[in-house]
Design a protein around this nucleic acid. Sequence first.
DNA 1: TATTGTTATACTCTATAACTATA
DNA 2: TATAGTTATAGAGTATAACAATA
Lengths: 150, 150
Amino acid sequence: MATREITAELANPLEELLGYQVQRAADAAQEAAAAALARLELRLISAVVLQLIQANPGCNQSSIGRALGVQRTNLVPVMSDLEGRGFICRRPADGRSNALSLTDEGSRLLSEVRAVMQAIDEACYGDIPPRLRNRMVQHLRAVRLRAVLD
Amino acid sequence: MATREITAELANPLEELLGYQVQRAADAAQEAAAAALARLELRLISAVVLQLIQANPGCNQSSIGRALGVQRTNLVPVMSDLEGRGFICRRPADGRSNALSLTDEGSRLLSEVRAVMQAIDEACYGDIPPRLRNRMVQHLRAVRLRAVLD
DNA sequence: TATTGTTATACTCTATAACTATA
DNA sequence: TATAGTTATAGAGTATAACAATA
């Protein structure tokens, strides 16, 4: 990505559409986050999963998928990577699901992850006044929840 | 996609992060737009390209890529599909680039496209008061332009 | 019967490299 | 030398189908 865009070469009527700006901003921020997390050899999804596990020790893999709108099947390589590198621990809960938790090493990693992600959020969205930021958070959450119901 | 999410099954500290909400809202809106445009057998990128061509008759393919942050190489199948279906016309400009324009059929299609995309934007973001909407547009555009410069 | 975790696989979209032709 | 368009292909990410084990 990262094609320059110093002055607008073309007229773009979509610039006035909120949906377009949300999409483009999300792309830009995701690219920045992915680049920063790559230095920890983590995907964005892995970083998010770590945060969810810490906030919900003992939860299982499928519940994480539901919380994030990711199919459980696509979480398999993510979790297996995190476990293989010693960041999370899977302890049998009932016979079919595992209770997830962070290892000590996972907790240490998460500290770094959090620092990285806050830095990115600040770099991308830090210029937005806090009150507006909060309003945007509320409204964008509503957008998602409305859309999920169709 | 479209995993339910009636009540929050898990605690999710990311819900307070603007970056997270922007991403999730963009995903939800994109899914809705893609589904609606699929009825016209169009990808989202194709719909956007049509609008850019109409707003910039005579422009070439590479300039569209730059405007959208899409590599020109990935525009090849898009343009070739739009031309093959008779929606756009490529007229040799200099010996290496083509001047793009909509055909009559492309203009007709674009009317439908616009209706679809405005309906989606309204369904997703219509609950946001116009003044806030405008502020969000300005700020999110700034996010992208800032990020592009690194 | 529904859920959890998994495998295998297809599909979509994007990224990279290289080439031709033209400016 | 830089740009436009293209081809071919690799890679990342997501979606679908099916399965075994358990609730």
